[in-house]
Design a protein around this nucleic acid. Structure first.
Lengths: 229, 229
DNA sequence: ATCATTTCAGTGGCGTGCATCGAGGTGGGT
DNA sequence: ACCCACCTCGATGCACGCCACTGAAATGAT
């Protein structure tokens, strides 16, 4: 099947008519990104509405001192470029880089905008997606402002587990994190060493056993407890 | 005129047909809040889509230690409850309290939802609004994670000036801030003392003269400079 | 108006969480 | 076996949160 076929299957577009989906697909162009390639830099004008076909992207900002804050990742079936739809003149708020080799489908902004005005279902779907992101950003602010670094790490790990092992019970759990400690640090707004010390402390307290990316979670309950403070 | 007449005039609903506006208005109920009255607490089920008729509301969260983070304010013509439109089962993400005596118009969720599905213009308008909020939340994360407290204060003051004195040139500018230092602190994720010291430091550096809520801005350029680091 | 009470602002001191630096240790990949 | 990226951990300094106190300003009652 053609690469852009996948557009028809993404959750965001579920419920749209075949006709609309075909129009969307016909307007899409595939773009390949190498690992580590920058797709967009913060401050640039927006380019397109995008669907990730495969691979993984990272969204982030960097301050003058070089510290990086990660705002999120996008994988297959995810979309991005939502804010460009309604605010075409605003510069890109974040930078975007390919974490692995990645293919994306670019849909030009005018055509999806026009479609959105004719298909309320599409507009509502996009609004729903945007609402979710808003909530997760609220949570991030909440954490950065109201919790200390150890809490944030525990909280991060807890939500990572719920997302990636939703079926796990309360028993021991072997994990292999797909991020380095530096990457985790950039997500929770701190530095590598603090993440390392955080794992050490949780190990001391008997919550888990950690060695590098390999983590054995001993007590989910106590992890959650630590995350909530 | 009837209180809810104002619904027809708010920016969000600009461009909607008279028919639609009347329907919206007919579904609205006015609610009075005393100063300091809590309208919604974080965690409660969503109540309605709301328009602020007059007064001012504050949106915030508090952690267990009692520290408060303000996410924003809403004044006349502003709306809130956007996330409830698309995620009806999600609990309210933030608490809401009346900073002054306030009147709001509540529009029940089902009717505006139904309207949104029939009127793409409304859906797009709401999406646009949501996009703006998402961006401002991004900025807040950016600041909390990437800037120190003094930067955040300078940055906060700078954006406050641009919003409230857009016509001001580069010359001296007398300001009266409508917030106490504690309130400013809660917005930028720090404590009162740091705000006080921040103003002192900016005064030492010749950026402004401060005494209480009264601030004389001397160099807008240097303020912006300080905000960007 | 005057005074009392409360809220707010300015400032020093102090403890601590965390960022920075530096020196190893470890493991995976070629 | 080697290298290179990643992780561990101690030492140190600084920013910032917390406490305590003082004075100023606002608010309210008489």
């Amino acid at each position: 099947m053609h690469a852009t076929e996948m557009i028809k299957e993404i959750p965001l577009f579920k419920g749209l008519s075949e006709d609309v989906l075909s129009r969307l697909e016909s307007r899409a162009r595939v773009r390949r990104l190498e690992e580590g390639e920058t797709y967009l830099s913060a401050g640039q004008p927006p380019r397109a509405f995008c669907v990730v076909l495969n691979g993984q992207l990272k969204f982030y900002r960097v301050n003058k001192a070089g510290k990086e804050q990660v705002f999120g990742y996008a994988g297959p079936h995810d979309v991005f470029g939502l804010t460009s739809l309604t605010n075409p003149y605003r510069a890109m708020p974040v930078s975007c880089i390919a974490r692995t080799a990645t293919e994306i489908a670019e849909i030009d902004l005018p055509s999806i905008r026009e479609l959105m005005h004719r298909e309320p279902a599409l507009a509502v779907a996009i609004l729903t997606e945007q609402g979710k992101r808003y909530s997760s950003m609220l949570d991030l602010v909440d954490q950065l402002s109201l919790k200390d670094a150890h809490n944030r790490l525990a909280s991060w790990l807890d939500t990572w587990v719920t997302e990636n092992h939703p079926d796990a019970g309360d028993n021991e759990l072997m994990l292999v994190l797909p991020y380095t400690q530096s990457e985790i640090a950039a997500q929770i707004g701190t530095v590598r060493e603090v993440v390392s010390r955080g794992f050490s402390r949780m190990e001391k307290e008997g919550i888990l056993k950690a060695s590098g990316k390999r983590v054995t979670l001993l007590s989910r309950k106590r992890l959650r407890q630590m995350a909530e403070a």
